[in-house]
Design a protein around this nucleic acid. Sequence first.
DNA 1: CATTCCGCCTGTAAGC
DNA 2: TGCTTACAGGCGGAAT
Length: 289
Amino acid sequence: MPELPEVEVTRLSLVDRLEGARLLGLRLGKPLRWPLGVAPLALAGARIGRLQRRGKYLWMPLGTAGDASREEAVEGGEPAETPGLLIHLGMSGALRLDAELPPAGPHDHVDWLTDRGTLRLHDPRRFGAVVWSPGRDLDPAARLLAGLGVEPLEPGFTAERLHAGLQGRRVAVKHALLAGDVVVGVGNIYCSEALFAAGIDPRTAAGRVSLLRCRRLAQAIREVLQRAVTLGGSTLRDFHDAHGHGGAFQTQAQVYGRAGQPCRRCGGTVQRIVQGQRASYFCPGCQHR
DNA sequence: CATTCCGCCTGTAAGC
DNA sequence: TGCTTACAGGCGGAAT
């Protein structure tokens, strides 16, 4: 569920309440995808900096207790260049922040106990992760960020950059976009939606998408993701922001999850195909190679 | 090097 | 109703 919009919606719902909070303790449940990489006790007393996002990762800077100069530096610390925690929501993760939360259930795997309330990671499938970064190059968290593509909502994401990243690739453009090494944050839902908006067949070889079509595709990716953020993300099952509010993008999806239903633009039938073990949805009447 | 496929883990829904 | 199977938002790493 969590693609860039869901992660950004989560970040926006947390950032003001969490910035400057004091971490009192960390409670761990079942293991997640990767080990935390630090003793929870070692983080007690740390000050939480300004929450950031890189692709589908959230970055929580942590300032060491009692070291004021260090806390200042951590405020704007870049992911994995200062100490902090790298958080990924996987397929089923969601964060919630509240003054009072019920006792941890079987799928509540991390609780950050802070002086602003408890931040809780709920993740039934446990594909998510929370990884400690001491702020050195090539630590486990930094390695997760190495090789990520450009941020689609930043000025650096241009048609030229997208085109260059797709050049020479024989895989389907759908697959190339999901890989995340050209542009980050585009997951299975928004990939199908962006390709529809750009009028591109998902089976088109990545390297054969012209610069002109990359202009449309880059614009479509920006618009689809931005629109999804505005709508609070997609709540297919149980995604919600840190206050428990669901998103509404799924009610406006043009093709995702609409196999067999009429295309909202041309009236044709939306198709579902499988590419790389993932479902792709598209309209044969509106999207071409 | 590029590409393809598996597997992690659990819940839900469809099919028999 | 009960059991089995397929599938789901991601992504690293092994195999090809």
